[in-house]
Design a protein around this nucleic acid. Structure first.
Length: 271
DNA sequence: CACTCTACCTGTGCGC
DNA sequence: TGCGCACAGGTAGAGT
């Protein structure tokens, strides 16, 4: 389940890795499953990608941006959201396509970038203006300022977990990191945002930044038998019944805002 | 405004 | 062994 740290890891791999995609031309595109595309038809999509040069790779929250340049034509962006099971793979040209390959870009230097997605939730867009797709996102969770964060919390009466998951408040946090952040902050997922003390707001903000930074540095999370991106070790996610790393009390699993939620009953008191 | 539900998907893992 | 089913997740959109 790629969230901000895993998407950042994808950006770094494709942008800074060897080989890097920066500067490479897209020779052709194959759309294996049309549903992967949002906002235009497969033929237009392929025609626009063909011959484009990848000028830059970045992200906002969980959305990946490939800045594309075409001769005698305006800049445009290929935007990809991996949702839950999407992956981007860089493979040598000619590798047999996988069962779950939804889209494939043939690139210069005999490379191919594949979008694989068993559950078909991931999507790709091609737009001139990224705000067509990501315009309603809040600031990236690693870029939000404390003042803005605390103002948003103070003015809201929402539960903390749904608030952290709301991409229009801050972009990039998903179910795994929401649980990890709330655990580190020592706050209950169902606590009401507007009820937090100044110190608690500060703790939550610091936890957002520190958990995400550590996970980025670790290249993403490693969740036993479920999900492996990098080596960030989770403390509570998926660890119901196992001892809290801080106090030893068994971790509980329950629902918060319709989402499976993991928390320590002793370290994260509802208030 | 805040919430809840549903749809979109399919691999996994459970109980029987 | 095999069947059926609930479940996991992010987001949009509709409804309460």
């Amino acid at each position: 389940m790629p969230e901000l740290p895993e998407v950042e890891s994808v950006v770094r791999t494709l942008r800074d890795g060897r080989p890097s995609l920066t500067g490479l031309r897209i020779l052709s595109a194959r759309i294996i499953w049309d549903g992967v595309i949002s906002g235009c038809c497969a033929d237009d999509f392929k025609a626009l990608l063909k011959g484009s040069r990848i000028e830059g790779i970045s992200r906002h929250g969980k959305y990946l941006f490939f800045k594309l340049e075409r001769e005698r034509s305006a800049l445009c962006y290929l935007i990809i959201h991996l949702r839950m099971t999407g992956r981007l793979l860089l493979v040598p040209k000619g590798d047999a396509p996988g069962r779950h390959t939804r889209m494939s870009l043939l690139l210069e230097r005999d490379l191919e970038m594949r979008f694989e997605d068993p559950r078909k939730f991931g999507r790709a867009w091609l737009v001139r203006d990224v705000s067509d797709v990501t315009g309603r996102l809040g600031p990236d969770a690693l870029a939000i300022e404390f003042e803005q964060f605390s103002a948003r919390l103070a003015e809201s009466r929402r539960k903390l977990k749904p608030l952290l998951l709301d991409q229009s408040v801050l972009a990039g946090i998903g179910n795994i990191y929401a649980d990890e952040i709330l655990f580190r902050a020592g706050l209950h997922p169902d606590s009401i945002s507007g009820n937090l003390s100044g110190i608690e707001v500060r703790r939550l903000y610091d936890a957002v930044i520190s958990v995400l930074k550590e996970a980025v540095a670790a290249d993403g999370a490693n969740i036993d038998g479920v999900f492996k991106s990098g080596h960030f070790a989770v403390s509570v996610y998926g660890r119901q019944g196992r001892p809290c790393p801080r106090c030893g009390e068994p971790i509980l699993k329950f629902r918060s805002g319709q989402r499976g939620t993991h928390a320590c009953p002793q370290c994260q008191i509802l208030r």
